[in-house]
Design a protein around this nucleic acid. Structure first.
Length: 222
DNA sequence: CTCCGGATCCTCT
DNA sequence: GAGGATCCGGAGG
């Protein structure tokens, strides 16, 4: 359909202030926002339909055992300890990238994982980056799919999502119906109903399917 | 439709 | 060394 129209509330300074909020609180208002990456190959824009909040070790009322920052700062998670509005992109499973937008005050080490969205611009380029995708709704229906469609890699971690070649526009009107539940693929207590910090637009076809964390079948020699 | 295994390598202990 | 905020294709119901 149509993307959100940039307006006063979408100026970078105001978006940054919005992102200073607790990710669990602002997540429902971020749904429907449009994130753009204008790479050398061209622009791709995605309307966010599903996100997950990950809290820092200090700022939440109780620590978040599912967060990459649970064990404190490392080289990888450094962007999460910085100011809001920047990207935290990590590499996982030996082949996939996943992207977060850092949230909360500088140093709070919280973020929103971008789990799914609908491609609203640059669909041709997104489809080239997602050759396995057979339907429009599947182009960014998963965190690694979304990162792939936008062309995001660890080269982009720590970069400002609110400045070129990126851009983030908040929705002119909030999503009509937002649901929440346990986070996907998180092992241990962090994936339990104690942490219902996954948020999605109800009945949106691009939202990914829920999957509990699955113990990995190890292949190592005895 | 659901279930399951394999791919593949960076990161932290 | 071990395992992961995943995806995809194939097998089976």
């Amino acid at each position: 359909m149509s993307s959100s129209i940039p307006n006063e509330v979408s100026k970078p300074a105001e978006v940054r202030r919005f992102l200073e909020g607790d990710p669990r609180i602002i997540a429902p208002q971020l749904l429907g926002a449009v994130l753009t990456h204008h790479s050398e190959a061209g622009p791709v824009s995605v309307r966010l339909t599903e996100v997950e909040a990950y809290m820092g070790p200090r700022d939440s009322e109780h620590p978040d055992p599912g967060s990459h920052t649970f064990g404190g700062p490392t080289a990888r998670n450094a962007p999460m300890f910085g100011p809001p509005g920047f990207l935290y992109v990590y590499f996982t499973y030996g082949m996939h990238y996943c992207a977060n937008i850092v949230c909360g005050p500088d140093g709070s080490a919280s973020a929103l994982l971008l789990r799914a969205g609908e491609i609203v611009d640059g669909e041709g380029l997104a489809a080239l980056r997602r050759p396995a995708s057979k339907a429009h709704k599947d182009l960014a229906s998963g965190p690694a799919r979304l990162a792939s469609a936008l062309g995001l890699t660890t080269a982009d971690t720590g970069r400002d999502a609110l400045a070129p070649p990126f851009g983030l526009w908040l929705p002119a009107t909030p999503a009509a119906a937002v649901a929440s539940g346990p986070r996907v693929g998180v092992a241990g207590p962090g994936g339990s109903t104690e942490y219902p910090w996954r948020f999605w637009i109800e009945d949106d076809p691009t939202v990914s399917k829920y999957k509990a964390a699955r113990p990995r079948t190890r292949n190592t020699a005895v």
